[in-house]
Computed example of a mutant assay.
Amino acid sequence: MMQNLTQTLADWIAGGGREMGELHVEPLENGFILHHADDALLCEVVCLQGAEAARELAHYDDAGQFRPLKTAPNLRHGWRLHLADLTELRRALDYFYPAMLGVWLGLQRGRLVTVPLRETLARQTGMYAVTKKITDAQAQTMIGGFCRSDGGCVKRILWTIAPGVPITSLPVEKFQSAAPPQRLPLLCHEACNLLVAKAREIVKKSEAPA
C-alpha cells in the first residue's frame, strides 16, 4: 500500500500537482520543498529538514495553540521544509494530513466507502450513545458550523446525514470531490470523532433541565 501511495504521489506531481490543503509542494533537483501556501513570497522563514519536522509543525497554529483537527484551516506559517525524496514527502504529508493520501487513492480506484452520519452515530456506545438522539435539524446546524471551510475544516464532505438526507447547511462546493490537477483534495468519507463529540454536547444540552 505504501508503494502504491508513493507512486500515486509521484504521478500526481509529474502531472503538475502542487497543492494539498494549505500546503504547497515545490519539486527540486535534490528533493522537495514544502511550505504554507500563503508563504510563497515570504522571505523570513525557518528552514527545516526531514519528514519528522512536519510532526511538530502540524501540531500548533501561529499562536502556539494545539490543533486537535489537522484539517482545520489554521496551519502555522513561516517555515520551509526540505525533504530528500518522495518517501520523505509522503511521510511529511501524512503528518500534516493523516490518511488523506490513502483516502484520495481509494476514491480514484473506486474503493472508498462513505458512511452516513446516522450510521456513524449508530455505532457509538457508552457516553457517546446519546448522539443517536440528535435530530436532523440539529445535525444540519451542527455540520454547518463545525465543518465549514472558513474556520472549521478544509475537507470536502462525501457523506450524508442519512441515505436520501443530504446536508443542506453548507455551500455546494463543500461536497465536490473533483479538483484541478494541481490540487489534491482532502476528502471526508465519515464524520470525525470531534464531530461526534460535538453531537453529544448538543444532545446533552438539549436534554438538560431548563
Rank of each mutant, 00 (worst) to 15 (best):
L75S: 08
A210Q: 09
N193K: 13
P166A: 04
A14S: 13
P68S: 08
P166M: 06
M2C: 00
L9R: 06
L86V: 07
V113N: 07
F146Q: 00
L121C: 01
Q108W: 11
R123E: 15
V46E: 15
L9V: 03
A139N: 09
P163M: 00
I134R: 00
V130M: 05
G151T: 02
R67D: 09
G21R: 10
K174W: 13
P73S: 10
T160G: 02
D39N: 02
L112A: 10
M142S: 10
V203L: 07
G102L: 03
A199T: 03
G15V: 05
P180N: 01
C47N: 15
R90N: 10
M100W: 02
R183E: 11
L9C: 07
E19S: 13
H36R: 06
H35M: 14
P185L: 12
P68Y: 05
M142H: 01
L117D: 01
V172W: 15
A51I: 08
A139G: 02
W12P: 01
G50V: 07
P185F: 09
Q65W: 07
V45W: 03
K198S: 08
V113C: 10
G164C: 04
M1D: 12
A178C: 07
D61P: 01
L81T: 03
A53G: 02
F96P: 00
L48C: 06
T135G: 12
A99R: 14
Q138Y: 04
V154E: 15
Y128P: 05
L41K: 13
Q182A: 07
A51W: 06
G164E: 12
D136S: 09
C47Q: 14
A99Q: 15
S177T: 09
V165W: 08
E207V: 01
Q124F: 00
L107H: 03
L9W: 10
H189I: 09
R55W: 11
A208T: 03
A40P: 06
R183I: 14
P180Q: 05
A72F: 08
L107E: 02
G31D: 01
L187T: 05
G151M: 01
Q3C: 05
D62M: 07
A162T: 03
G16I: 06
H36S: 11
M142Q: 07
K204E: 10
G151L: 06
V196A: 07
L184P: 00
D39Y: 03
D136M: 08
G144N: 05
G144T: 03
D136E: 14
S149A: 15
C188D: 00
L121S: 04
N74S: 11
L112V: 10
W12A: 05
E201W: 04
L158Q: 03
T135F: 08
R200F: 04
Y95A: 09
A122R: 13
H77D: 06
P116I: 13
L112D: 06
L93I: 00
P181E: 08
P68H: 08
A197P: 08
A37M: 13
L23E: 12
A197M: 14
A179V: 13
Q3K: 12
P185K: 01
P166V: 03
H59A: 15
